[in-house]
Design a protein around this nucleic acid. Sequence first.
DNA 1: GCAAAAGTGTTCTCGTTACACCCATGT
DNA 2: ACATGGGTGTAACGAGAACACTTTTGC
Lengths: 242, 242
Amino acid sequence: MTQNGPLQDRSRFPVFASAPLELAVSTVIFALRPAPEGGGRRTVWIPLVRRIRDPQRGVWALPGGPLEPERELAESAAFTLNETTGLSPRYLEQLYAFGGLNRSPGHRVVSIVYWALVREDEAAEAVVTENVAWFPADDLPEMAFDHREIADYAVARLRGKLEYSHLAHAFLGDLFTLAQLREVYESVWGRRLDPANFRRQLESSGRVVATTQLQTGGRHRPARLYRFAEPIPTSRTQGESR
Amino acid sequence: MTQNGPLQDRSRFPVFASAPLELAVSTVIFALRPAPEGGGRRTVWIPLVRRIRDPQRGVWALPGGPLEPERELAESAAFTLNETTGLSPRYLEQLYAFGGLNRSPGHRVVSIVYWALVREDEAAEAVVTENVAWFPADDLPEMAFDHREIADYAVARLRGKLEYSHLAHAFLGDLFTLAQLREVYESVWGRRLDPANFRRQLESSGRVVATTQLQTGGRHRPARLYRFAEPIPTSRTQGESR
DNA sequence: GCAAAAGTGTTCTCGTTACACCCATGT
DNA sequence: ACATGGGTGTAACGAGAACACTTTTGC
């Protein structure tokens, strides 16, 4: 580790005087929405907010704000998220703490970043103004500070964690067909899955329980409705587990 | 999300005035050392420091301190770690940001926690005073604040991540036999592994490269020495990947 | 020669993949 | 009747676990 210079100087001042340090909480929000190419497929979208202050005024950024001093970290994320986008997360998990020295010119900002999942119907109702807009996760615009890297990292985590967790629950309602669940996986991963194998893997995983109800209305055999075996764990301390 | 009361009050003050917020960086350090039961086996140990200030003076705690305002988060972790224990990490990764409201009575402390691996020989040279001592990861003493949960969480991450990463590298030197590498896994996981299958898995994983050198001296056939295929990635943004 | 660990070979099982095929509905 | 997706069957493949067996050293 390199020993850098101003150690002596700093030691003469209290911490807050020598370096104004800001602790922010931001969130990468995910929802599934129709793919920009159309074709009936869906993909992952992220809402961004336009910065209304300098630095980087007018540039797209992750929704966030200073840590609310009397809220838990996750609560603070949910609060700011709701204030800026009107959304409520169905799943919320800490992503990473970003604290590089030059993230914001002239300031030392440490951002504790969360990621959240919201349902498609909630996302549809979300505020969309000139200063809030949705972008495909694979086609993000220029973003402020290091927010682009953060978003990309969050996308990787979403795609990775989908495989070994109950994450997909958060995108669906209480009852769903296996085709709907499969479509969540296909949308996030951007590739087709074999329906037969998908069914078997999920049924043997125990993450899902068959109900007696069927869903009619399609021009084909009715599909059995399933529900999730466990409630969605929006817990705090389960960041990376595996 | 619960809306809690003092919103109006807070809004009348600048953030720093209403809630003194401290940003700390702590580290869970791991080393392999002989198991307390003896028997030639090794296990995971963690060094703790005794708190010299209130609150919780005299109680064992994770090494850490306030974020150094002019250092990166990881650098700050390595710096404080070195100051308190004399150790230099061979691997360092962010674990989680803990920011509960009641972690420390009367203060709002947000701790960004790292975890680190050190080699056994370095650990042996480490400072051990009345205020610094090593404990088996599976038999930790009473600890200050929420440090016990943090340590347990870190142990789980170490055990989990060993499986799908190059982590074991950090416990070894440049050259090593497959038996030595296997012993790292056995020590961390606390169970025996089949030498034959271990060899094949590792060789096919590409994480390891055979050299032409052999290690003689045992009362048995000499073992081939291997080296790691890639340098140890002590990078910052690779927290959970998988 | 013998003990002990290095290293190889073989079998079994189990999960994943690919894909053929039957089922039940709406039009 | 037939198109469409729901749902079942099955064979091929590959990774991992268990364990027998051979190799090479020190004593």
